[in-house]
Design a binder for these strands. Structure first.
Lengths: 348, 348
DNA sequence: TAAATTTACACAAACGTTTGCACAACAATC
DNA sequence: GATTGTTGTGCAAACGTTTGTGTAAATTTA
């Protein structure tokens, strides 16, 4: 049997197989899909020919036909940020496992670009959208529009202030609570916190966790031990000075993130303060390198971005594949909070 | 005019617009695409109706029809690695700018999974593929197969040992040359290098750069000043001991990467060696945090992953859009080497 | 042996869009 | 008043695949 050397041009189609075997396309299709109504001999012939011609089903055609793209859109602010790159890693892992494909884009924290991307994703007919909204996003109608088109959205980490949405987010309150609790149990009574700007939810969560831990130990919250820092090095140093000159000098300090921890520790060392001796430090994990450093916080609050990404992707795919809203008036919304957790530094 | 409340179910199609306006689909299509042969009035009517119904062209259908997906596949080993997350960021930026869409997947350095992903990408009919091959990949026929299907591939950073391919990679030789040169100019004559395993191309490049710099200063290469390290902390310490007990004790050390630098510096400090005083350190930039640390290398070789990602994407898109190989027998291959560069530590 | 059932296949429609071609209506030219 | 040209529109095919329905031939049943 000599059928033209497979021309390395256009991919083989089901039609060509049909023509070469002198059977109908439908038979070929069914044969390839092991449909019961096709004879064994025909199946074999078709499959053999398909393999010979390197046939590969055109997914685009199938997706178009079935109105399903088997693709999820993912919009993140910035892939270079380690939190998000860890998250996308988890998202892709789940998508791969569940046989979905990931369409990726970054908003660069630009609300306009984000809006455009959402539009694009809709036109691409993604089966679902996973998004961590940009910092500058302050209108939310486009999400509503997306929702109307019956494509599920799962929000992730940065959640818009809108009702009736699915989301996965971490709660820093629990981790902060644990962190402060841990310090209290170690005997500390004067615990400073270098918190972030007051307009961040993350700052509020930290504050609440702090207060909760204090009151749970029947200690009252001293507001002067919590400073709001702009997270720069200068701001950090200022905050540290504030504490060091405080009438109640903290014996432990919780810092907003690893950068702040770094600045604070460096500054403290320059003043000959013994790290984790004179003052214990606790931070929030966001940088991979921190564990390799000389003077690191004795513990840090972990947010599990990889795990969060997986969870969010799983929820989205569940939503996509759920057995069609059985006319239930009020659908249930996934509001998953991944509790943060205190990780106590490994010795050495 | 009262046409049914837009049912928030299936997206509007061109057909519905046609029916409502009682004109043909072809007219609607042309009107929306501002085809010259459609009357102004009709155009207006169509556009108005399209807007009213929130019409959005079904890209999947168009892609299918035109046999172009306007999508590039990107396969990277590990998104959580900062080199690759910086790269994907650049890739996505270019793709976005040039109106392409990014299909992302990670191989996790698993050759089998990589093969599968390539297969998937082909079935998805991506217009091009960008890939950094996994560490375990040792057969390359699947790339050939891909190539046969006329979909361009651009290899990125980790290049397979195959002829006639497009690639973008960094060359560490130039940066290493600069680094050693820099140290020589500072007066150092005994420069140690903690290199990586010999089987890595990256190790060879470093070695070559080192030798080149030495010979350019009419110094001869002392092999005992270059050790191959397994890049663990223990290995690094061993390497350091080697140097410190050497008859020619190095006054400067080049480390394979930031982790090694960290280990080496930490160990040196534990021996009360003054960093960048008794011994100058130079490393290769791969971790964002390094700049924030107390004792950092005085300089580091930068590979510009973001820039490399952009470059690779640009090349791929050029290949995709090039005016169809005008029957030229031997196509030209892009072999772009992004030279690495020495960045001298910012003061303070 | 006729009827009923099963087996194995073909036909054709459908998905949403673009595009070559045909064609009508009307205006302009000779 | 016949020809040519222009303008605006519709028809139908095409892309690759799946799938409902129709229908011969082969097999079983009565």
């Amino acid at each position: 049997m000599q059928h033209l050397e497979q021309m390395s041009d256009k991919p083989t189609t089901i039609k060509e197989i049909a023509k070469l075997l002198d059977i109908s396309v439908s038979t070929v299709s069914r044969a390839l899909n092991d449909h019961s109504s096709i004879g064994l001999i025909t199946k074999m012939r078709v499959k053999k020919m398909a393999k010979e011609l390197n046939y590969e089903p055109n997914q685009r055609a199938i997706q178009f036909l079935q109105g399903k793209s088997h693709t999820i859109g993912v919009i993140l602010p910035e892939l270079a940020e380690s939190f998000f790159s860890a998250a996308i890693s988890g998202i892709e892992d789940i998508a791969y496992k569940r046989n979905y494909t990931v369409l990726l884009a970054q908003s660069h924290d630009d609300a306009d670009r984000e809006k455009l991307l959402i539009e694009k994703m809709k036109m691409q007919r993604v089966d679902g959208l996973l998004i961590s909204v940009s910092k500058t996003t302050n209108t939310y109608e486009h999400f509503e529009a997306f929702k109307k088109s019956n494509i599920p959205i799962v929000f992730f980490d940065r959640i818009p202030p809108v009702k009736n949405i699915h989301f996965v987010a971490s709660n820093l309150e629990s981790g902060t609570f644990e962190a402060v609790n841990f310090l209290l149990k170690k005997g500390h009574r004067t615990i400073g916190m270098i918190n972030g700007p007051t307009n961040l939810v993350a700052s509020t969560e930290r504050k609440n966790g702090y207060i909760k831990a204090m009151t749970s130990h029947r200690l009252k919250f001293d507001p002067s031990l919590m400073v709001n820092c702009d997270l720069t090095e200068a701001g950090t140093i200022e905050s540290m000075d504030n504490f060091l000159n405080h009438k109640r000098k903290p014996t432990a300090i919780v810092t907003f993130n690893d950068y702040v921890a770094l600045f604070a520790i460096r500054y403290a060392r320059s003043l000959n303060i013994q790290i984790n001796k004179d003052i214990d430090f606790v931070s929030y994990a966001n940088l991979p390198l921190i564990n390799y450093m000389d003077f690191t916080p004795i513990a840090s609050v972990e947010q599990f971005p990889y795990k969060q990404g997986k969870k969010a992707a799983d929820i989205l795919l569940d939503l996509i594949n759920k057995p069609k809203s059985d006319s239930d008036a009020e659908p249930a919304y996934y509001n998953v909070v991944v509790e943060s957790e205190l990780i106590i530094g490994k010795e050495k």
